[in-house]
Design a protein around this nucleic acid. Sequence first.
DNA 1: TCAATAAAGGACATTTTTGTCCTATTTATA
DNA 2: TATAAATAGGACAAAAATGTCCTTTATTGA
Lengths: 145, 145
Amino acid sequence: MMFSKACEYGIRAAVYIALQSLDGRRVSVSEIAEEIDSPIAFTAKILQQLNRNNIVHSVKGPTGGFEIDREDMDTVKLSMIVKAIDGDKIYTGCGLGLKECNASKPCPLHDKFIDIRSNLRTMLISTSLFELATGLEVGLTYLKR
Amino acid sequence: MMFSKACEYGIRAAVYIALQSLDGRRVSVSEIAEEIDSPIAFTAKILQQLNRNNIVHSVKGPTGGFEIDREDMDTVKLSMIVKAIDGDKIYTGCGLGLKECNASKPCPLHDKFIDIRSNLRTMLISTSLFELATGLEVGLTYLKR
DNA sequence: TCAATAAAGGACATTTTTGTCCTATTTATA
DNA sequence: TATAAATAGGACAAAAATGTCCTTTATTGA
């Protein structure tokens, strides 16, 4: 609807990892893919990206897998995941695809998008992984289906 | 950022056609593509879609081209163009790509998207082609660059 | 030290989106 | 009525996004 598939999987994966990390469990790609209902090899690629951007932490070898430090769950905001995968066009791009579109030379939708974009931006910047993971933990929200 | 390329071109084309129709001018695909800076043959396809959906009106043959009736400029809302080209996933789809995501079984972002989605929906439903075309006419907004 | 396990990463395959080209159809007007 | 101008539409091409497979690298534990 708004994010690429890769970004959707990335967010779902990060939330799932955070949830399990709250229990001290490290999780494998195959478990993640199973639990968030995503293609496994593609999910692995996305997790590599998240790892390179220090959003999740990976450990190789037996007993290895992915995890997120408790402190990072507060630090890591949705905006960081989205930026790592989809870039920042969601903030900066013009709604009609013009290269140059700003207050001084706006496209016909520019003003109409200002509030929407600003709300989206605020939401992404202020929502932490911890908040999302605890919603899941309490059983208020779901990652599958 | 939010719409497909096809939809961006479609909106820009429709606004340009509306603007010219206010002057009683019918416009060709090549003029449209030139003026909104879009690939001509691809734009032609999109205009066919808009024509089939009665968003623009096409006339074949010499002196032919695309036009929009003055009354239709009020009737046609952005939402109709977006729906004709991108479908309605922008309203109905889940932000995280879940098939089933609603108030009773929400994804972790469901509540956070409600206002944003609702504002977007309201904006698209309430913005008419006439409004967009007159902004252009007055020189307040731009379709190129 | 060796075998097994897990992520990293490169190469490739498929699908979707974006874009082009050519022919057919319609229609105005000379 | 013939010509030319315009859209309609089908077939194809290119690029980007999505997805798979296989080999390499790191690490654990027997």
